[in-house]
Design a protein around this nucleic acid. Structure first.
Lengths: 109, 109
DNA sequence: AAAATTGTTCGTAGTTTTGCGAACAACAAA
DNA sequence: TTTGTTGTTCGCAAAACTACGAACAATTTT
């Protein structure tokens, strides 16, 4: 009765974990909130919201972009960032579903 | 105009990031879903759901416990785990609020 | 052409995460 | 007492994360 018999994580669980992981840092939460509330979203504006160096901000933005939660566009000489609406909605649904599936019952402990 | 003038992350953002980080791994998502759907929740049951060694499972459980999302109780010789209802609800609200705050607008990019 | 602006990328450093097997602890059963 | 069951903790290794300054690229301004 080994635990490793061809078992794997579901695609949905992987996706949800990916979203969650991207949100797993206060700087990235701050960035997402900022982008979710504004139209103007240049790199400099984001940088000004955060207590970290621009190189680090750039890295966080890259991670959020890789996770699909935001997107960027060059608007020479600036770079404009914004929420990726499609994936944002997807993430929202994933989290909603995740928490909704809680069985209502008294604490088992 | 330095970016580091006494700026910090809000308590709420830190808390949300902590929840998100705890959820940022497929094994931990799987554990949470499992616990959210069952009454019987011994360590062994959880271990059987996952493709990883028991030492690793124990570590993931510890992280979830530290984040406040689950709780454990010794029921000699087993250990019973379950969702921490209070914090689960809190997390649900945090994520809900986070995604709800999205300004409705056309893609800016 | 030289200098300034805006961000990204590179190189580096330190920390954290993920994972495992082995050792251990606590108790129950033989 | 010895053995077995159930999980945790320890020690280790590899990888990923977080952060920074410096260098760089692309374009504008002077």
């Amino acid at each position: 009765m080994n635990c490793c018999e061809n078992k794997d994580y579901s695609v949905d669980n992987e996706q949800l974990a990916r979203f969650a992981k991207a949100m797993g840092h206060p700087a990235r939460i701050t960035i997402l909130q900022f982008l979710a509330s504004l139209d103007s979203c240049y790199f400099g504006d984001i940088h000004n919201e955060l207590p970290i160096a621009k190189a680090t901000v750039s890295q966080h933005l890259k991670e959020l972009k890789d996770a699909g939660l935001i997107q960027g566009e060059i608007e020479t000489p600036k770079v404009k960032y914004c929420i990726n609406q499609e994936n944002w909605a997807k993430a929202q649904t994933f989290f909603e579903t995740f928490f909704k599936n809680k069985t209502v019952k008294t604490n088992c402990c």
